[in-house]
Design a protein around this nucleic acid. Sequence first.
DNA 1: CTGAAAGCGCTAACAG
DNA 2: CTGTTAGCGCTTTCAG
Lengths: 339, 339
Amino acid sequence: MSLTLQDVADAAGVSVSVASRSLNGRAREYRISEATEKTVKKAAAKLGFRPSQVARSLRLKRSGLVGVVVPDLSNPFFASIAREVTLTAEHEGYSVIVADSRETTANEEQLIEQLLARQIEALVVCPVGRRHEHLSAIDGTGLPVVLVDRGFAKSKLVQVTSDHRCGAQRATELLLDHGHRSIGVLQGLPGTLPNDQRIEGLREGLAKHDIQLDSAMIAGDSFSEHSGYESAKRLLSLHPNITAFFAFSTPNALGALRLISEMGLRVPKDLSIVTFDDIPFADFMSVPLTTIAQDVPALGRTAAELITQQLRSGKRPRIKKHSMKVHLVSRDSIGEAKR
Amino acid sequence: MSLTLQDVADAAGVSVSVASRSLNGRAREYRISEATEKTVKKAAAKLGFRPSQVARSLRLKRSGLVGVVVPDLSNPFFASIAREVTLTAEHEGYSVIVADSRETTANEEQLIEQLLARQIEALVVCPVGRRHEHLSAIDGTGLPVVLVDRGFAKSKLVQVTSDHRCGAQRATELLLDHGHRSIGVLQGLPGTLPNDQRIEGLREGLAKHDIQLDSAMIAGDSFSEHSGYESAKRLLSLHPNITAFFAFSTPNALGALRLISEMGLRVPKDLSIVTFDDIPFADFMSVPLTTIAQDVPALGRTAAELITQQLRSGKRPRIKKHSMKVHLVSRDSIGEAKR
DNA sequence: CTGAAAGCGCTAACAG
DNA sequence: CTGTTAGCGCTTTCAG
C-alpha cells in the first residue's frame, strides 16, 4: 500500500531513525549532517512519502483531532460555528471531526463516545438539550470541553454564549419605548439557557418600566417556524389587544409573519415585531425585521480560542462563562403602539 | 491514561486475545465460552473501556475516516452537503473530517494532503476552481473520490452536479415565453462547470426560439452579490433596452435587486428577474424571486451513496457523472416584457 | 476453548 | 553523527 518510513530510509540509504528525525525538522537537534538531511528529504519528496498520522498518533499519544458536535449542520448558525472552529484548528495543525446530533441528546452522547474513542484532544459541542451530565463527566476527565450557544446555568463547564439577557432587555425596552404595553412573547425551547436568559432579560426590561411579566403572554415550545406561527395565533386569539411580538428566533418571527399576513394585517402598521438572531438576506425581506443580532462567528472564534489555549497550556481557563455581545439591527418592523 | 485492552483482560482474568475477541462479537467464531464472554464484557463495561480507534486503525489499516472539503462551510449550500455526507457516514460507522478551503485551490490541495496523511478511506470535495490534476491524481491512487457541485467537463472523476443545463434552458424559455428578448445574463465564475453548463442551457433555450446568444449580454466574474450588482449596472448602461435579468446565483440576483431598487425601478413591473439556486426564507422576500432551485440535500446524499457503495464494494461506479434534477419555483419576479 | 507473540508505522531512548 | 530496538494498543495467526 502506501509508503513507510522504512522505504524512505532505504531509498536514502539511512536508518529509519535518521529518516524520521530529518523529516521532522529535528536534524539540528540530533546533529544530523546537512547532506544526509537533504538526501532524506529528497528521497521522501521523490517517493511522495506521506507519514501515517495514525501511526504517529499511536506513538505520540496525540491524535491532532478536535471533535465538534452540532445539532444540525445545515443550520447556518451551527455551520458558522463549526467553520470558525475548523479554521482555527486547521491553523493550529489540528483536524476537525464534525458530528451532527440531529437535535437529540441520545445521538449527541453516542457521537461523543465515538469521538472519544478516536482519541480527540478537545471537544466543542453545541448541546441539544437540557441534560449535561455526560458533558460534565468528560470534562472531569481532563479533556478540554467547550460548550457553545446552549449552555447550562448551573454547571462548571466552559461555555460561550451570546448575552441573551442583555439582548432581550434591549428588545423589550425598544418595544416599550414605542408605547407597546401588550407584548406577545414567542419563545423557543423552554429550559435551555438561551431561552431562559431571554425571559430573564424580558422580565428586567419590563421591570424597568414597572411592569410585571405576565406568563400568559408567553407561548411557544421550540425555535421553529411552526412554533412561531402557532404561538402567535394562540396569543392573538387569547389577547386581541396585543400590539407587538417579541420572537425568540428568526423562524419564530417568520411564523408570526406568515400568520399576520394571512390575517391581512401589516407590519409595522398593525402589529410590531422584534426578533432575536439575524438572517442572511434580511435586507431583502418584505418586512425588514428589526432584530437583536448575535455575533455568530465570534461565538465560534471564542470557542476555538478557548480550546487552543487549553491545548497549549494544558490549563483550564479561569473564566468559565463567556458572553458575546449582541447588537441591535434597526430595520423597520417596529411602529408606535396605537392606543 | 486511558484504559487498554490489557486492563480489561486482567480484570476479567483472561488474555488480551480473548478480551479482544469477546468485545468484537467474535466469541462465537472463536468458540469462546459464553461465560468468559460475559465476564469480559462486564469487566469492560464496569471499567468504562473504550477501545482506541487509532490503535485499531493502525492494526486494521482502516481508519474509518472520510474527508470532506468545501470552499466555505458557512455557506448553507456547502453546509448542507457536508451534513448529508456526515449523516450517512455516521450511519455507516465512519467519521467525517471536514476541511474548509476558503475558496482557494492551494488550501484545497494542502488540506487534502493532510487528510490523506490521516489515512482517510474516501474523499468528497466541492472543488474551488478550475484545476483538478491533484484530484485526478488521488483518484488514480484507488481512493474513492467524489466531486460535488463544481465538476470538470473533461475528467474521469466521479462527480455529482445539478442539471445546470436543463435548468438554465427552462429559465431562458420562461423569460422568452413572457416576451423578453433582451436578456441580461449575470454569470458566476466562468470556466467552472456550473457556470459554463448554464451558459450552454441558455444558448439552447435561445436557439429554440431562433435567437443567437449574444456574448455582449453576459457579464460577471463570480457568484457574489458584488459581481451581480456591478454586472447589472454595466449591462444596463450598455444595453438600456434590457427587460430581464437571468442571474446565475442568488447573490448575483440580490446584487441586481439592490441596483434596481437604487434606480427606483420595480420588479417585475419595470424589470424581470429569474435566478438559479434557492435561498431559505425566499417566501419572505420583498421581491419573491422566481428561481431554478437545486436539490442540495440530494447532491450530498448522492455523493454519500456513491462513497458508501465504493467503500463496500471496492469498485468504482459505472456511471461517473451524476446529474440532479432542478425544479422551477415560480414566485413573482417575472412579468410580461413591454414592447 | 484460550494464550503467546508478531506486527501495523512511527518516535525516542539508548548505544555506539 | 547514525543505527538498534522497544513499544504505543490493538488484532490475528499459530500453537496448544
